[in-house]
Amino acid sequence: MKRIILGGLLAACGLSACQHKDLCMDHNHNANLMLEVNWYLEWNLEYFIDWETQWHPDWKVDWSKIIPDEPEGVRLVAQSSDDARYKQVYNLPSGGGAVELQPGRYSTLLYNNDTEYIIFEDADLSSAITATTRSRTRSPYSENNPQEVTVNSPDYLFSSYDDDFLIDEKQYDAVTGDVIRIVVDVPMYPVVLSYIVRYEFTAGKEYVVEARGALSGMAGTVNLSTRRTLDDVVTVLYDEAEVSDYGVEAVVRSFGLCNFDPVPTDEYPHGHFYSPDEIDSRVGVSRQDRPRAGEETRNILTLELALRSGKVKTIETDVTDQVLQQPRGGVLIVKDIEVTPDEGEGNNDSGFDVDVNDWGDNEQIELPV
């Protein structure tokens, strides 16, 4: 079989008015393309800090909560370069599969299709498709910070894109008569990364029943063909914080900081920040009335502690300097946290008072299938 590399790929979307096909790798004998998908299961991207070499040997974490699992499936969107109205959508197993495309040039966009909280914003061009996440309110945080748009942590998302993929005329096996398939290696790169948050206590962690929080100043939207984050700002809520041997540990998933391009170049081997003015005007952006990032934007890490006394203690820390060094995932450290006996002593083990209002209304959105 003929093998080529499909380079520079990125993923995305959910397109309306498209043809959808569920394929089996062994039964489509007329398929002229075989996609072999390779997932880059990274939890962060190196920028100023390389956690491969700078990880503290005493830090123990449950990596199953941080490193993504291989997604359950992948979707290919192929858009004709000659006629942008002609799009085909194929749903494939996680490892890839067989696809039949007519000869010609295409832009090809791939993404994992097993997400729950991701919202894909459609566009005429596949290069303009963006992803965002569902808005959510949580009291008392949302009431205390009414200026901030709060969202769920996004699901793990991967993407791959090629803006000029050529399909030659079909060739046939002289013996079987089947189409000879081109084999394409598809690298799926992470779009959603993780921050490991370490709240290191000096005293009082024994009073903590439950913990949760938020991280502000993060990107609300990402373009899936370039993997660039856009400049709308959101606050990502997190709930799965737990008491550890040193204090409280949490994992916050996000698209990362605004206005960041993670694709390596010779000049910027670890990606770079860019001006929003550089964005092609064709790239569709739905700001959803969100504020835009500026020099005044700060990354505030909030920790809410439900204590045995029945009280809730809130700690806010400016971690902007830490996040700037780690724009796409990393480790955030807050030291010297203390809960005094006056604050924490008691027999209340119920944690946060969670009811329907506490979580806010679920946002129901029709997604393309």
Rank of each mutant, 00 (worst) to 15 (best):
residue 364 Q to E: 13
residue 213 G to L: 09
residue 59 W to V: 13
residue 348 N to S: 07
residue 81 S to Y: 08
residue 112 N to D: 02
residue 68 P to F: 01
residue 31 A to V: 01
residue 54 Q to L: 13
residue 12 A to Q: 09
residue 343 E to N: 03
residue 28 N to I: 15
residue 308 R to C: 07
residue 168 D to P: 14
residue 27 H to A: 14
residue 42 E to V: 07
residue 151 V to K: 08
residue 84 A to F: 12
residue 192 V to K: 02
residue 305 L to H: 03
residue 164 D to K: 09
residue 64 S to G: 04
residue 76 L to H: 09
residue 320 T to P: 10
residue 12 A to Y: 07
residue 337 I to Q: 08
residue 238 Y to H: 15
residue 213 G to P: 00
residue 50 D to T: 00
residue 138 R to D: 08
residue 103 P to H: 03
residue 226 T to Q: 00
residue 184 V to W: 08
residue 92 L to N: 00
residue 24 C to Y: 11
residue 7 G to E: 11
residue 189 Y to V: 08
residue 269 P to F: 04
residue 117 Y to D: 11
residue 309 S to Q: 07
residue 251 V to E: 09
residue 100 E to Y: 12
residue 361 D to T: 09
residue 60 K to S: 13
residue 13 C to A: 12
residue 201 F to W: 05
residue 319 V to G: 08
residue 9 L to A: 09
residue 118 I to A: 00
residue 123 A to M: 00
residue 232 D to K: 10
residue 97 G to F: 00
residue 116 E to T: 10
residue 106 Y to V: 00
residue 304 E to D: 15
residue 20 H to M: 12
residue 252 V to W: 06
residue 49 I to A: 03
residue 96 G to W: 01
residue 168 D to I: 05
residue 49 I to D: 07
residue 6 L to D: 09
residue 118 I to S: 00
residue 60 K to V: 14
residue 135 S to L: 07
residue 351 G to H: 07
residue 199 Y to W: 15
residue 270 H to M: 07
residue 96 G to Q: 01
residue 361 D to F: 07
residue 279 I to C: 03
residue 225 S to I: 03
residue 192 V to S: 01
residue 248 V to P: 00
residue 79 Q to G: 04
residue 44 N to C: 14
residue 359 W to P: 02
residue 1 M to V: 06
residue 320 T to S: 15
residue 173 D to T: 00
residue 33 L to W: 05
residue 150 T to C: 12
residue 49 I to P: 00
residue 210 E to D: 14
residue 245 D to V: 05
residue 148 E to V: 06
residue 17 A to V: 08
residue 189 Y to S: 11
residue 286 S to G: 06
residue 69 D to C: 07
residue 67 I to N: 01
residue 252 V to I: 15
residue 290 R to N: 03
residue 199 Y to M: 09
residue 167 I to H: 05
residue 271 G to E: 00
residue 149 V to W: 11
residue 141 Y to I: 13
residue 149 V to L: 09
residue 29 H to A: 12
residue 343 E to F: 05
residue 132 T to A: 01
residue 36 E to I: 10
residue 91 N to E: 13
residue 132 T to D: 02
residue 213 G to T: 11
residue 174 A to E: 13
residue 193 L to A: 08
residue 78 A to N: 01
residue 127 S to K: 08
residue 120 F to T: 11
residue 325 Q to A: 11
residue 59 W to C: 08
residue 41 L to D: 02
residue 164 D to E: 14
residue 114 D to A: 03
residue 7 G to F: 06
residue 133 T to I: 05
residue 201 F to V: 04
residue 229 T to W: 01
residue 235 T to Y: 08
residue 287 R to M: 13
residue 223 N to M: 10
residue 341 P to T: 04
residue 9 L to P: 05
residue 292 R to K: 15
residue 278 E to Q: 11
residue 368 P to R: 08
residue 214 A to V: 10
residue 181 R to M: 09
residue 13 C to S: 12
